[in-house]
Design a protein around this nucleic acid. Structure first.
Lengths: 160, 160
DNA sequence: TGTCATTTGTTTCCCAGTAGACAAATTTTG
DNA sequence: CAAAATTTGTCTACTGGGAAACAAATGACA
């Protein structure tokens, strides 16, 4: 049994969320939906998908990476990665190669077209964050980033 | 055109993410996948799904709420909400009623079984956050919550 | 009043993503 | 060495969720 009504439904059009607004998973979901909406509003028309671009980007930074390691790093299931990679292959963006020392594995690298695609879109993709309207001031934004990075276990890569 | 390779791949098994680790959307996705994994590990066997429970919970707090307003509050698409509600109805957890003053709308409320379901699971659901292992200390955790709440616009003070 | 526009929920069709079985290659173990 | 166990990617089948067209009800406006 739970104390449910912490306060009465406010206005006609206000929805009480109660403890839900203190649930980490719920907050993350709300934030992500919001982000996605603006992402497609901002970059949808040039045919850029966040997941897709992430894979190509990591391929760009890690040429020859094995498919499984790539999936693991981006937390994409292997079955799904297979489909994404085949799609990229069909579009001529990625090439697969089976290494001789382990013929189960698949090594991935961008084709020239793949490199061109990443180069074409990297600026738009990474500058998107700056365009997104946010109620947070820059310091709060930085704080949020740092906490999220720590939470997901990404050591912020040092750079100048 | 973008300068892409800022440095060589670090270790054999390390994956360079570059600017991706500074992308808000990416960080949110990583965090959410992590959260989901532990959620199902923790509560999956009792047949609890975060989205499902959220809907029932909000129904509990806002009896008679209209379907569309519920969807809007939880950022669930109306088409999808239709399916969820029908599912709840089939399971006897939710009852639908068409109000006389607007016969397009549907007002939702939990059945007795629905109330029982929420009461049965609320404690497990809301205490889940505390069980989840996290690298953040309590103060950082609180800070992260506050920033996310502010970001998604559900600060404790209601807005107009 | 009658016509047009909007709101509300539903339906249909589609796609991203998952679970789990699978085959092939490799590693481990007896 | 042979047999069992694990790793790696793929396949099939399924589910959650979205886009768009739709019908019914309501509201706006001439």
């Amino acid at each position: 049994m739970t104390r449910t009504i912490s306060r009465p439904p406010a206005t006609e059009n206000e929805v009480a969320l109660g403890d839900l607004s203190r649930s980490f998973g719920f907050l993350l979901r709300m934030a992500q939906v919001q982000i996605f909406e603006f992402f497609f509003e901002d970059l949808g028309q040039i045919g850029l998908r966040p997941g897709e671009f992430s894979v190509l980007w990591v391929l760009h930074l890690n040429p020859g990476i094995r498919q499984g390691l790539l999936a693991q790093a981006l937390r994409i299931k292997r079955a799904h990665m297979t489909k994404m990679i085949r799609n990229f292959e069909d579009r001529g963006l990625v090439a697969r190669a089976v290494p001789d020392d382990d013929r189960r594995a698949v090594e991935l690298r961008l084709t020239d077209a793949g490199v061109a695609f990443v180069d074409d879109h990297a600026k738009a993709f990474f500058s998107h964050d700056a365009r997104r309207p946010t109620p947070l001031d820059p310091q709060e934004q930085a704080q949020l980033f740092a906490l999220l990075q720590k939470y997901v276990g990404i050591t912020p890569e040092e750079r100048r």
